[in-house]
Amino acid sequence: MFTLVAATVFFAAFLLAAGTILGMFALYRDKMIAALLFEPIPQEAPVYRLRISRRRAEPRSTVSVRPIAAGILTA
């Protein structure tokens, strides 16, 4: 009689463990597939190439530079 009860308890525990494992696979199937298909972020830093273009000032012959008065510098 003890052998029959022990076998029944062992078999029930085995079925409970197997059911738990299968239930976890059923619940987390999508997350496991997403984890297996995940591509890690590359470790290399992205290289940005910037080109700055600006217009150069055109020299004008009409603009004259006035000399600073000598009195200002002696003050």
Rank of each mutant, 00 (worst) to 15 (best):
M1N: 10
F2G: 08
T3R: 12
V5F: 12
A6N: 07
A6R: 11
A7L: 08
T8Y: 07
T8G: 13
V9Q: 01
V9H: 03
V9Y: 01
V9T: 04
V9E: 01
F11M: 08
A13Q: 12
A13L: 12
A13G: 14
F14Y: 14
F14E: 11
F14G: 13
L15C: 02
L16M: 07
A17Q: 13
A17S: 14
A18D: 00
A18K: 12
G19M: 12
G19Q: 00
T20Q: 03
T20G: 02
I21D: 05
I21W: 12
I21G: 04
I21V: 14
G23E: 00
G23P: 01
M24F: 09
M24C: 07
F25C: 06
A26N: 06
L27T: 14
L27K: 15
Y28Q: 08
D30Q: 10
D30E: 13
K31E: 10
K31V: 00
M32G: 06
I33E: 02
I33T: 04
A35P: 00
L36I: 03
L37E: 11
L37G: 04
E39V: 06
I41C: 09
I41K: 15
I41S: 15
I41W: 15
Q43R: 12
Q43L: 06
E44R: 05
E44D: 09
A45E: 08
A45R: 10
P46L: 02
P46C: 01
V47G: 01
Y48P: 04
R49P: 01
L50N: 11
R51G: 02
R55T: 02
A57D: 14
R60W: 01
R60C: 02
R60K: 08
S61N: 09
T62G: 05
T62P: 00
V63N: 03
V65M: 07
V65G: 02
V65T: 10
R66P: 03
P67S: 03
P67A: 05
P67Q: 05
P67E: 09
A69W: 15
A70G: 12
G71R: 15
G71V: 06
I72V: 11
I72P: 06
I72K: 15
L73I: 15
T74R: 15
T74V: 15
A75S: 14
